[in-house]
C-alpha cells in the first residue's frame, strides 16, 4: 500500500508527531511505501535542527531525520507555514535576509501542492493532529 502521512502538530506539546513517526516506521517495516511525509501547521516545527530535548527523552527531530536517511523518505515542510514559524533552509534564509537557517537533515521546504499531490498519488492519506 502507498501511504501519504500528514503531521499537523509540533513536537513534544502534542503526540501527533510521535504517532506519525511510529506509524511511518512500522508501515515501512511491513513493506509498505510511504511516498511523502508532509508537515503542516505547527508540524513544521518538527523540522528544526535546533531542538535540544533532555538526554533521557526521545529526540523527535533526530528520529525523523534518521528514518528519512534509512528509507530515503521524502519529508516536506510547507513553505507558507514554515515562514510564519521561523523554519528556514539556506535558500529561504538568504532570500528573506535572515542571518541563519535551521532546517534539519532529511527535511525539505516546498509548497502545499506537495500535500495535494500526496493525496492524489497515495492509496491512503493519513493525518496526525487534533
Amino acid at each position: 500500500m502507498k501511504f501519504g502521512v500528514v503531521v499537523n502538530e509540533g513536537p513534544y506539546t502534542h503526540q501527533a508527531s510521535d504517532s506519525a513517526y511510529q506509524f511511518t516506521k512500522e508501515a515501512l517495516a511491513q513493506g509498505h511505501e510511504v511516498i511523502r511525509v508532509f508537515f503542516y501547521h505547527d508540524g513544521v516545527n518538527n523540522g528544526t535542527r535546533l531542538t535540544v530535548p533532555p538526554g533521557d527523552d526521545r529526540h523527535i527531530q533526530n528520529n525523523w531525520s534518521q528514518l528519512a536517511k534509512e528509507h530515503n523518505l521524502d519529508m516536506v515542510v510547507c513553505i507558507a507555514a514554515a515562514q510564519r514559524r521561523g523554519i528556514l533552509d539556506e535558500n529561504e534564509a538568504k532570500r528573506q535576509g535572515k542571518d541563519a537557517d535551521n532546517i534539519a537533515d532529511g527535511f525539505r521546504i516546498s509548497g502545499l501542492g506537495q500535500l495535494i499531490e500526496a493525496g492524489i498519488q497515495a492509496d491512503r492519506l493519513v493525518t496526525f493532529g487534533d
Partner: peptide
C-alpha cells in the same frame, strides 16, 4: 487558532489540481 486559515490555504492551492 490558525487551523481554519491554513485549511483555506490548502483548499485554494488544491483548487489548481482539478480534483
Amino acid at each position: 487558532t490558525i487551523y481554519a486559515l491554513e485549511a483555506l490555504e490548502v483548499v485554494l492551492i488544491g483548487a489548481a489540481f482539478d480534483q
